[in-house]
C-alpha cells in the first residue's frame, strides 16, 4: 500500500464579501497517495479551484479558512508563515493553472521564468545545470529547446500549456495540481496535453490532482475521483466504481449529461434549476432542491457528511435512503 502524501481534513473556507460570507469550501476531506492521480469534478463555481488554491495557500486575501488541516507529507500547511510556504510551493507542490495563456509574464523569456523558480529552490545550481534541466523537461513535454529563448507571445496556446507543464515539473514536486489545464485549448491539442501529463506522471511517479468540469477527461486521467457540489464533496471513490455504479443522484446526473460515442443513442438529461447561491447558509442537503430522486426516502435536512458504503467508496449520507 502506498503511503498518504496529501491529507486534507475537514477543510472549510469562505470568502468575506460585501454581500456576506461565500461558503466556497465546506468540510472537505480527501487523501492523495503518492503516485496516485486524484480527480475533482463538479460544475463551475462549486469550489474546485478554491480547493486547489487553498492547497497551495494561494487563496485571495478575503478568504478565511475557518477550520481543517492540509497535511503535505506530514507537514501542516494551514497557518504556515509566508516564508515557510515559499519553500513548500513549487518544491513539493506545484500547479498548472486554468489559463495557461496568462500564466506567463509577457515581458520575460520562458526559460528565464522557469529558471527563476529553480534559482529560488536550488540556489546552489549553476546556470548551465538549470539550462540542461529545462532542456530535458522540454524534451519530455515535446517542446523544442529553443523555446527557452522565446517570449510568451511568440508561442501558440498548446506550446504555452506544454511549457507550463515543464514549469510545474521544474523543481521536482511530489504532487502537481492541474486546474482545468485544457479548458482554453481545442480538442486535438487537449488530447495531446492530457497524454503528456499522464506520460510525465507515470515517468516521474508523481501524484496528480486533476480538476475539471469535464467528467470524461477525469475518467481518462484519474484513479480516484471526488464529485463536488456547492462546496462539498458528495461522492468519492475509485474512478471505476464511481463510473460504473454512481451512488449519488448528482453524480448520476453528471454522467447522464455527457454524451457517449459507443452504445445506444439516448437523450441527454439535464438538471433543472441552478446551483444554490453559496452566500446563503444551506441547512442540510444542498442538492435537495434540484434532486431528481427526491421522492425516494432521504432526509434533506440532515447535514452533509460522507459515509463509506463500499471499501474506499464514500457517498453523502443524505442519499443513503437510495441505497
Amino acid at each position: 500500500m502506498s503511503k498518504i502524501l496529501l491529507e486534507v481534513k475537514n477543510l472549510s473556507m469562505h470568502y468575506d464579501t460585501l454581500e456576506g460570507n461565500v461558503e466556497a469550501v465546506k468540510n472537505v476531506s480527501f487523501n492523495v497517495n503518492s503516485g496516485e492521480s486524484f480527480g475533482l469534478v463538479g460544475e463551475s463555481g462549486c469550489g474546485k479551484t478554491s480547493v486547489a488554491m487553498t492547497l497551495l495557500q494561494l487563496q485571495p486575501e478575503n478568504s478565511i479558512i475557518t477550520e481543517g488541516s492540509i497535511k503535505l507529507d506530514g507537514k501542516e500547511l494551514v497557518g504556515l508563515s509566508e516564508n515557510d510556504l515559499r519553500k513548500v510551493r513549487w518544491d513539493s507542490i506545484s500547479i498548472v493553472f486554468q489559463g495557461a495563456m496568462n500564466a506567463w509574464n509577457p515581458v520575460i523569456k520562458i526559460g528565464e521564468q522557469i529558471r527563476e523558480a529553480m534559482r529560488e529552490h536550488y540556489p546552489q545550481n549553476s546556470k548551465q545545470e538549470n539550462i540542461n534541466k529545462i532542456n530535458e523537461l522540454f524534451r519530455m513535454v515535446g517542446l523544442d529547446e529553443s523555446i527557452s529563448e522565446r517570449f510568451p507571445h511568440e508561442l501558440s496556446g498548446g506550446m504555452k500549456q506544454r511549457a507550463v507543464i515543464a514549469l510545474a515539473l521544474s523543481c521536482d514536486p511530489k504532487i502537481i495540481i492541474a486546474d482545468e489545464p485544457t479548458t482554453a485549448l481545442d480538442v486535438v491539442i487537449q488530447d495531446q496535453i492530457l497524454n503528456e501529463i499522464k506520460k510525465v506522471q507515470n515517468l516521474l511517479g508523481l501524484s496528480l490532482i486533476y480538476i475539471s468540469h469535464d467528467i470524461a477527461v477525469i475518467a481518462e486521467m484519474t484513479d480516484k475521483i471526488a464529485v463536488m457540489y456547492a462546496g462539498s464533496i458528495v461522492e468519492m471513490g475509485p474512478t471505476k466504481n464511481v463510473f460504473t455504479s454512481p451512488k449519488h443522484s448528482y453524480t448520476r446526473a453528471l454522467l447522464d449529461s455527457t454524451p457517449s460515442i459507443k452504445g445506444e443513442k439516448k437523450k441527454l438529461r439535464s438538471l433543472d434549476g441552478e446551483p444554490p447561491s453559496l452566500i446563503d447558509k444551506i441547512d442540510g442537503c444542498s442538492f435537495a432542491p434540484r434532486c431528481p430522486d427526491r421522492e425516494i426516502s432521504c432526509n434533506p435536512t440532515e447535514h452533509m457528511s460522507l459515509i463509506e458504503i463500499e471499501p474506499d467508496h464514500y457517498v453523502d449520507v443524505c442519499s443513503q435512503g437510495k441505497i
Binding site: 515559499r86 510551493r89 513549487w90 500564466a103 509574464n105 523558480a117
Partner: peptide
C-alpha cells in the same frame, strides 16, 4: 494578472514578485 499568481505559486519572494514581475510590466 494571472502571472502574478504563478509567480507566487513558484515560491518567489514578495520583493522579487513586486520588482521583477509586477513593476517590470507596469513600467511600459
Amino acid at each position: 494578472d494571472d502571472y502574478i499568481l504563478t509567480a507566487r505559486a513558484k515560491g518567489l519572494s514578495q520583493k522579487r514578485i513586486r520588482d521583477r514581475h509586477a513593476a517590470r510590466t507596469a513600467l511600459l
